[in-house]
Deep mutational scan, measured.
Amino acid sequence: MKVIFLKDVKGKGKKGEIKNVADGYARNFLFKQGLAIEATPANLKALE
């Protein structure tokens, strides 16, 4: 799953980066902790 990092995550990505991560890791950790959001077209446009 492609995500946009909202904060730096050690070993995974830095704020503003778009990367592929495992679906479960994204849903169960990154999204719940507020560290990333899904890289949807609307979210990508908002990032610009």
Rank of each mutant, 00 (worst) to 15 (best):
A26H: 05
D8K: 06
A42K: 09
A46K: 13
L44V: 11
E17K: 03
E38R: 09
L44D: 03
K32G: 06
E38F: 05
E38I: 07
G16K: 02
A46E: 10
T40V: 04
F31G: 01
A42M: 09
N43F: 06
K19F: 06
L30Q: 01
F5P: 00
V9L: 07
V3L: 04
R27A: 07
V3K: 00
K14V: 10
Q33D: 05
G16W: 11
N28Y: 13
K45A: 14
K32E: 10
M1G: 04
F29K: 07
F5L: 08
K45S: 12
G13F: 14
K14F: 13
G11L: 05
K19Q: 09
V21N: 00
F31E: 03
A46I: 13
K2D: 10
L30D: 01
K32M: 12
K14L: 12
V9Y: 04
K2R: 15
F5W: 02
E38Q: 10
M1R: 07
N20Q: 14
A22V: 09
Y25S: 05
L6F: 03
V21E: 04
D8F: 08
A22M: 11
P41A: 13
A39P: 02
L6M: 09
N20P: 07
K2Y: 15
Q33P: 01
K7Y: 14
E17M: 07
N28F: 12
F29Q: 07
L30A: 01
F29S: 06
G34Y: 07
M1F: 09
I4S: 01
I37T: 05
T40H: 05
N20H: 14
L47T: 08
I37P: 00
K12R: 14
I18Y: 03
G24E: 15
E17H: 05
N43L: 07
K10V: 13
Y25I: 07
D23S: 15
T40S: 10
A22K: 12
K45F: 08
K2G: 05
E17Y: 03
Q33V: 11
K19N: 05
K12Y: 15
L35T: 03
K45V: 11
L30T: 00
E17G: 02
K14G: 06
Q33T: 10
N28Q: 11
F31W: 03
K15R: 12
F31H: 01
L44P: 02
A22E: 13
E48Y: 12
A39Y: 11
K32H: 08
L6D: 01
K14A: 09
N28T: 10
T40I: 05
F29V: 13
I4Y: 09
G34R: 08
V3S: 00
V21D: 02
M1A: 06
N43T: 07
G11Y: 08
K10T: 11
K7Q: 13
E17I: 04
A46D: 10
K12T: 13
Q33K: 14
A22S: 15
V3E: 00
N20L: 15
G16R: 03
A22H: 12
K12H: 15
K2L: 14
L30E: 00
L44G: 03
N28I: 09
F29A: 06
I18H: 02
L47M: 13
L44Y: 04
G34I: 02
I37S: 03
N20V: 15
G16V: 01
D23E: 15
K15W: 04
G24R: 12
V3A: 01
T40L: 04
Y25H: 06
G13H: 12
L35A: 06
G11R: 06
E48T: 11
G24L: 13
V21K: 00
N20G: 07
G16Y: 09
A26K: 03
E17S: 06
A39G: 05
K19A: 10
N43E: 06
L30N: 00
K7T: 12
I37N: 02
T40M: 03
Q33I: 09
G34D: 06
A22P: 15
N20D: 14
V3P: 01
K15Q: 10
A46R: 12
K19H: 11
G34F: 09
E48K: 10
F29Y: 14
G16T: 02
A46T: 11
A46Q: 12
N28A: 10
R27H: 09
K32Y: 07
N28D: 13
G34E: 06
N28K: 14
I4P: 00
L44E: 05
G13Y: 13
E38D: 04
E17Q: 12
K32P: 15
I18L: 06
K10G: 08
L44K: 05
K12V: 15
P41E: 14
N20W: 15
K19E: 04
E38N: 04
K15A: 13
E38S: 07
L30F: 03
K7I: 11
K12S: 13
A39M: 06
K12N: 10
D8G: 06
A39D: 02
I18S: 03
A36K: 00
A46L: 15
K10S: 11
L47R: 07
E48Q: 14
F31Y: 06
A46W: 15
F31R: 02
K14E: 08
G11A: 05
L35D: 03
E38M: 09
K19I: 11
I18K: 02
I37E: 05
G11F: 08
L44H: 04
K15N: 04
D8M: 05
A46Y: 13
P41H: 10
A22Y: 11
A42S: 12
E17D: 11
L30M: 04
L35G: 02
E38P: 12
G11S: 07
E17V: 04
K14S: 10
K12D: 07
E38L: 09
A39H: 06
G34Q: 09
I4F: 08
N28V: 07
K14R: 14
F31N: 01
D23P: 15
D8N: 11
L6S: 02
G11W: 10
F5H: 01
G13T: 03
A39W: 10
T40P: 03
M1H: 05
A36N: 00
A46P: 05
D23T: 14
D23Q: 13
G16M: 06
L47D: 05
A42F: 07
Q33A: 11
A26Y: 13
D8H: 09
L35W: 12
K2A: 11
A46H: 11
Q33E: 11
P41K: 09
L35P: 00
K19L: 11
D23V: 15
A36P: 00
E48F: 11
L47Q: 08
G16I: 01
A36F: 01
V21Q: 04
G16Q: 02
Y25V: 07
A42Y: 07
A42D: 13
M1P: 04
K15G: 04
V9T: 04
L30R: 00
F5E: 00
F31Q: 03
K7L: 10
N28G: 10
N43D: 06
M1L: 14
K32R: 12
I4Q: 02
E38G: 04
T40R: 03
M1I: 15
E17N: 04
G16H: 09
G34K: 10
A46G: 10
A39R: 01
L47P: 05
A42P: 08
K10M: 12
A22F: 10
F29M: 08
N28M: 12
Q33G: 08
E17P: 00
I4L: 10
N20S: 14
P41R: 09
P41G: 08
A22R: 13
D8S: 10
M1N: 05
K7R: 14
T40A: 03
G16N: 07
V3F: 00
A42Q: 11
G24H: 14
F29N: 06
V9E: 01
R27Q: 09
N43K: 05
L47V: 10
K14M: 13
K45T: 09
I18G: 01
A36T: 01
K2Q: 12
N28R: 12
I18N: 01
K15I: 10
F5M: 04
K15M: 09
G13K: 01
Q33Y: 15
L6R: 02
A39L: 05
G13V: 06
A36Y: 00
D8Q: 05
P41N: 09
E17F: 03
V3R: 00
K12E: 13
K45R: 13
K32W: 08
D23M: 15
K7S: 11
G11H: 07
G24I: 12
K14I: 10
K15T: 09
A36G: 04
K32I: 12
Y25A: 05
N28H: 13
I18Q: 04
K14D: 05
I37Q: 06
V21T: 04
K19S: 08
L47G: 05
G34S: 07
Y25W: 10
A22T: 12
A46M: 14
F29R: 07
A42N: 11
K10L: 13
E48I: 13
K10H: 13
F31T: 04
D8E: 08
G24D: 14
F31P: 00
P41F: 09
K10N: 11
K45E: 14
D23N: 13
P41L: 13
F31V: 08
T40Y: 03
G24T: 13
A42V: 09
A39S: 04
K14T: 09
E17A: 05
D8I: 03
G11E: 05
L30G: 00
I4G: 00
K10R: 14
A42I: 09
L44F: 04
A36R: 00
I4K: 03
V3N: 00
L30H: 01
T40Q: 03
F5K: 00
V9K: 01
K10I: 13
K10W: 14
K12G: 13
I37W: 06
R27W: 10
G13L: 02
L44W: 03
D23A: 15
K32V: 14
A39N: 02
Q33H: 15
K15V: 09
D8P: 05
I18T: 05
N20F: 15
A26F: 14
R27M: 10
I18E: 04
F31D: 01
